[in-house]
Structures are given as C-alpha cells and as structure tokens.
Amino acid sequence: MSGPRFHVLLGPDGAGKSSVMRRLVQRLPEWRMVSADSAFTAPEHALIPRLRQDVHDHLLPGLGTAYSVDFLASVLQTAVVHLRDQVREADPRVPVLVDSYYYKILAKCRMAGVQDSRMYSWWRSFPQPSGVVYLDVSPVAAWRRRGDGARLNALEYDGDAGDRADFERYQRNLRKLLLEEVRELPVTMLREQADADRAAEAVRGVLSA
C-alpha cells in the first residue's frame, strides 16, 4: 500500500511560505494546503493556531525563566503531530502541500538546546514527502521582511540582543540544519524571489511539472 502523496514547502524565517500558500489556494485549486497557520486550519482544529499564538505571546517571553526548552518542545510537538495527522488522513487522490512539516520545528528545537533524541527519532519516523520545495531567502532580505527586526521572536535569533547580527547568524545555521534534515529527499531549491506573487508562481511551476 502506497503512503500519502504530499510535498513540503520549506524555508528559513522570512521566506514567505504562508504568503505563498495563500496564493496557491487559487493557483493550484486541485491541491490541499496544510499548515498550522489559522488560514489553513479547520474550525474543529482551532486549538492549533491558538496554541501557536500562545507560544508567541506567553511561552517565548518566559523561555529560560518561567519555561524550559523541553516544555517549549512539548508544546511545539502539538503542531508536529497535527501536521502528521493531516498528512496521514489525507485523501490519496488529492495532492497535498505541507508548510514545513516537522523539519523546521525539529531544527529550531535543536538550536534551542533540546536534547530529546527519542522525540526526534519519532518525528523522523513519520511519512516522508515525495519532494521538498525549498524557498530560499537571504538573511539580509529576511531581516527587512521582519521590519528590520521589529517583528522578531526568540526563536529567530541567537543571543539576547536580537540585533541584525544575531538574526543573520541564526538564519544561516537554521538553513544548514533544514537542508541537513531533508538531504535524503528530492529537494528543489528556489532562489529568493522579489515578492510573494513571483514566489508563488515559482512554487506552482515546480508542483505542476
């Protein structure tokens, strides 16, 4: 029995994956978009974007004081399992594009210092995609897209300052870990695009080929 048919849209912070997926709803109507973003979650899964917002509003500001990195990983795992469930339960006749899958959360947990190899092994046992579309962006452009640092969270930069150097260093390391995680999969690299419309068209071209 064949596994689920799906692709993963991957990229560092600021790559524009959510913006691209919103545009692909119209450009690839035969595809199903799966994400933990509220724009792509059904009403019965409202807990997922709510938890995601709570991570940004409450957990990350208290990371290292009120909350440990292991607690962070436990909460982020809810999104990982949700995405796996959506993939596993998908109609095999309908192609699926998944935002980041577990790859980005795993990389960020590693960078945060989470050492739980059993958890990582479990995530890596999940169904694997037919291919990965990697939407690249330079740390310089990503910094601009984050309002020159005005819209950063604690999982987007190294150190305590959250300045441009901390952000760019983190993003370079994140890119390395993401590509390491998918090195055994077919990966299509898309260079940085000028805007979300062009990026969406580039992704559409890959998925329609």
Results as ranks from 00 to 15, higher is better:
5 R>A: 15
7 H>I: 10
8 V>N: 01
9 L>R: 02
11 G>V: 05
12 P>V: 13
13 D>K: 05
13 D>C: 15
17 K>Y: 08
18 S>K: 01
20 V>W: 00
20 V>T: 13
20 V>Y: 01
25 V>P: 02
25 V>C: 11
30 E>Y: 13
32 R>M: 03
37 D>P: 14
38 S>Y: 13
43 P>R: 06
43 P>L: 07
52 R>N: 12
53 Q>Y: 10
55 V>K: 04
57 D>N: 07
57 D>K: 03
58 H>V: 14
60 L>A: 05
61 P>Y: 04
65 T>R: 13
67 Y>E: 10
67 Y>N: 03
70 D>T: 08
71 F>Y: 15
72 L>F: 14
73 A>R: 00
75 V>L: 12
80 V>N: 02
81 V>H: 06
82 H>F: 15
83 L>N: 06
83 L>R: 04
86 Q>P: 07
87 V>R: 05
90 A>H: 11
90 A>S: 15
91 D>W: 13
91 D>G: 08
92 P>T: 04
92 P>Q: 01
95 P>E: 04
96 V>A: 03
98 V>R: 04
101 Y>I: 07
107 A>F: 08
108 K>S: 08
112 A>F: 02
114 V>L: 05
116 D>S: 03
122 W>S: 15
125 S>H: 04
128 Q>N: 06
130 S>E: 15
133 V>D: 02
134 Y>N: 07
135 L>T: 13
135 L>F: 03
136 D>M: 11
137 V>P: 01
138 S>N: 01
138 S>G: 02
138 S>V: 03
140 V>H: 07
140 V>Y: 05
142 A>L: 09
143 W>H: 02
146 R>W: 03
148 D>K: 04
148 D>L: 07
150 A>L: 12
155 L>T: 08
155 L>W: 08
156 E>Y: 01
157 Y>S: 09
159 G>S: 02
161 A>T: 13
162 G>S: 02
162 G>D: 10
163 D>I: 06
169 R>T: 12
170 Y>L: 02
172 R>T: 13
172 R>P: 07
179 L>Y: 05
179 L>M: 06
180 E>P: 00
182 V>S: 03
183 R>L: 13
183 R>K: 14
183 R>V: 15
184 E>W: 11
185 L>K: 01
186 P>H: 04
186 P>F: 10
187 V>A: 00
190 L>F: 11
192 E>L: 14
194 A>S: 05
194 A>T: 09
195 D>N: 12
196 A>G: 02
198 R>Q: 12
202 A>F: 03
202 A>W: 06
203 V>F: 00
203 V>D: 06
204 R>Y: 01
205 G>H: 12
205 G>N: 06
206 V>A: 01
206 V>T: 00
207 L>R: 03
208 S>A: 13
